[in-house]
Design a protein around this nucleic acid. Sequence first.
DNA 1: TCATATT
Length: 440
Amino acid sequence: MAEEKEKGQDSCSSEERESVKLFVGQVPKHMSEAELVCMFKEVALVDEVNVIKDKTTRASRGCCFVICPSREEADKAVNACHNKRTLPGASSPLQVKYADGELERLEHKLFVGMLPKNVSDAEVSSLFSIYGTIKDLQILRGSQQTSKGCAFLKYETKEQALAALEAINGKYKMEGSSVPLVVKWADTEKERQARRAQKAQSQASGVSNTDSTQQPSLFGALPMGYIPPFNGFSYQAPGTYGLMQYPLQPMQNQPGFHNLIPPINRGSALRGVSHDLPPGIAPRNFVTMPAGSYIGSAYPSAPGIQYPMAYPGGIMSHRPINSSRGLTPPAITNGRGTSPTSSSSGIQVEGPPGANLFIYHIPQEFGDQELANAFQAFGRVLSAKVFIDKATGVSKCFGFVSYDMPAAAQSAINMMNGCQLGGKKLKVQLKRDNKHNKPY
DNA sequence: TCATATT
């Protein structure tokens, strides 16, 4: 590791030996790392394979990371495998892509903030060209082609990007501007998604910012964790007051700061930002949480939900739906006092053939537990899962329920299919089975 | 609209 870094200093381009991590999905859970190495070595150079395992059970989660020695080799693996072949036991073809953050890391992409509204491409480009070759420059513009005050920029190499970052961030004012530019590593896709989800949640939680368009402000466009220079104490900007800040534990505050810096050589960028802050205000000393995370927060009850009278057996229990988007851990009350379902243990259990249901048009506010409750009148529910959009935290309105016997599933179909719940009619069908009909 | 999972 350390030696690799040393080498990076003295030779010109680090491109060639930069290793690349791939994420691979649809990996049968029984496959070992050795078997996977073998398989991928047929198509590309591979340094290492790591199966991703459940933290507690150590069982494979059906996916792995593959480390390739270069981008070229990684691309070979992607091209040869992604969506190209289905491993025995998998339900769909292998998914092979760059792991989260890899692409951004490889692109040496920077975010530039605090640009003047009337800045031109040429101005930005000539400033940043001092530090290296710009591969791509994109100034974000609004309707009247006026700049939104920020830009994304890619350099040829990490060293160039880092040089620009360190030289310009917080230090350089563009002509006619009273504040210095902000330069940091661009967010990864994942960080962007996290921010989107956070925004969606703060809006959904009813802490109303009645008009979020009124103050689009820089903050909408700024990277997560960014604190504007020179006013670190008052950055609760309009548009963010659905969010609360909590100090972290003291232990995490002080000297161990570097522990909080994401891997992969982003350290100096973060430190660069923090230098500009008033003493004692380090960006990572705060964690931002949706206001709804408070226990006992009062959510408006979801409108328009009606449970039909024909509903079998007191299904929903008396418990009001517990927070809107699963922010609060479900307080599990199983209406019939049956033994715990696996949905509460987190492991997905599939029932015997013919005992598994696919359900569509599930009301948006239903979580796993509400789904289980709604279907428990027909038999022992082994598991119930509602699918949630990772980016928004919102239900995708479909899910699965598994029983221990086909008869239970059948009677659930009879009773629940077409049943009006919320605005729409439930669609309740047997789950498709990808398993046993595989061609030899 | 059929189990998509990022150590």
